[in-house]
Design a protein around this nucleic acid. Structure first.
Length: 416
DNA sequence: TCTGGGGTCCTAGGACCC
DNA sequence: TCTGGGGTCCTAGGACCC
């Protein structure tokens, strides 16, 4: 039997902000995503704010209604990434089998030692080596699914063990369907329509029925109800770096001004290209999508995913590239093809089908060399002096994006 | 006052190749 | 006469996660 630990940081962005700025400690704070309050949501709420009912994903005005004294801090993903690197280093001292699941979550597979003792020690070391305000919940079990569930049962600063399948089934019988990772609102409501409202009932449904309704995912649901999950830990040293790189931006106001939209898209594609080059990758499938100001006809929660919006999207495949302008041209072509002409609220661009950039000795054409030199200089300057210090002349007019997190630079300025 | 921004995986049909 | 079978690539879109 395997020993899997799931480590999940509590109110991560909020506690990192509190650790960094003592004036925020012990106070209800909300970390915002964007810079316009009316058009953003909370990326995290501190424990103090959560006591008022404030939750991740809420709009700021909702948070104010619940907790008038809440303090908003603008999120800074570079700062959080720094802390993530620190805690990963601590975890790697216990086992090489560390899987990074997100910026504030990971799985560990232990091969020796007492898991509970190690979990306690990890918590202690995080407090002493990273900061007393940073706490995490740890779930221990025999697979990833149950370890993650265990970690979610006690928050903050929890430590729960689900020893075996028998215990797992006892736990499953007490929780809601959507409390397990992999069942969202859509699957839950489809199960409900079949008369299934909990795991006890789900366990009684024959596999064949689930396969008919959910295709291959039926097997996963069948296993979930029994606490079965054979998915292996994918350690950092085996993980393929990324599958896609993208950015999207919600505009400060809805617009149908093509020039304005163009400026935003140029910035997004330039950022994407710089990240590609930093990782020494090229990509060939460009996706563009937008959301217009038209209200969704479905209530929130029914169409929960960001892929379901009023607007449009399309992908095209081009020659492998890491040049922002080429990505832009592809995205712009799509935009021209699919745009309805309605006012736009958000635009997004991403590139997928990535592969490593291999030195191409065969294509040493003068123009290629020139382009590559330009891009190298551009990256060098921007990495050293900050985002958009040096940019293509076409970008100069834009003032729309005030701040997009730079994936390489640490920004430790406090916003208070 | 009405939903940010970063991702992953899967299915399915059509085009095209040998 | 108009067809097998194996495979890849491309695009659309659904569902999920933090």
């Amino acid at each position: 039997m395997r020993t899997i630990l799931h480590i999940d940081f509590n109110s991560y962005f909020a506690t990192v902000e509190q650790q960094a700025n003592p004036r925020l400690r012990g106070k209800p704070i909300g970390v915002t995503g964007g810079d316009r309050m009316e058009r953003t949501v909370l990326g995290a709420a501190s424990i103090e704010a959560k006591r008022f009912g404030v939750k991740t994903g809420m709009r700021p005005w909702e948070a104010i209604r619940l907790c008038p004294q809440i303090i908003f801090v603008q999120g800074d993903s570079d700062k959080y990434l720094e802390v993530t690197k620190k805690f990963l280093n601590i975890l790697k001292s216990y086992t090489p089998f560390v899987e990074v699941f997100s910026i504030d979550e990971c799985f560990l597979e232990l091969v020796k030692g007492n898991p509970e003792c190690i979990a306690k020690e990890i918590k202690q070391r995080i407090r002493s080596e990273i900061g007393e305000w940073i706490s995490c919940s740890i779930g221990i079990s025999y697979n990833k699914l149950m370890a993650k569930l265990a970690g979610s049962l006690q928050k903050p600063d929890g430590l729960i063990v689900i020893e075996n399948q028998e215990k797992a089934i006892q736990v499953l019988d007490k929780i809601e369907l959507d409390e397990i990772c992999g069942i969202g609102l859509r699957i839950q409501s489809r199960l409900n329509n079949m008369g299934i409202f909990n795991f006890t009932t789900l366990r009684k449904v024959p596999l064949e029925i689930l396969l008919v309704s959910f295709k291959s995912y039926g097997q996963t649901l069948y296993n979930m109800a029994r606490g079965i999950d054979e998915n292996p830990i994918v350690p950092f040293f085996e993980k393929v770096e990324v599958k896609s790189i993208g950015h999207r931006h919600t505009l400060n106001h809805d617009t149908n001004d093509q020039q304005e939209i163009k400026q935003i898209m140029l910035k997004l594609t330039e950022l994407i290209a710089r990240r590609l080059r930093a990782k020494k990758l090229v990509g060939k499938t460009v996706s563009f999508w937008y959301r217009d100001g038209v209200k969704l006809t479905h209530p929130r929660g029914v169409l929960g995913s960001h892929h379901t919006f009023s607007g449009g999207g399309m992908q095209v495949t081009i020659a492998y590239t890491n040049d922002g302008l080429e990505i832009f041209h592809a995205a712009w072509r799509i935009f021209q093809t699919i745009w309805s002409g309605d006012k736009i609220r958000m635009v997004g661009v991403s590139i997928s089908n990535l592969r490593p950039l291999v030195p191409q000795t065969l294509s040493l054409l003068p123009e290629t060399i020139r382009q590559e030199t330009i891009l190298k200089v551009l990256d060098k300057v921007n990495n050293k002096f900050g985002e958009f210090t040096l940019q293509r002349a076409t970008l100069l007019k834009s003032s729309q994006i005030k701040r997009i997190p730079n994936p390489f630079l640490s920004d430790r300025r406090f916003k208070l």
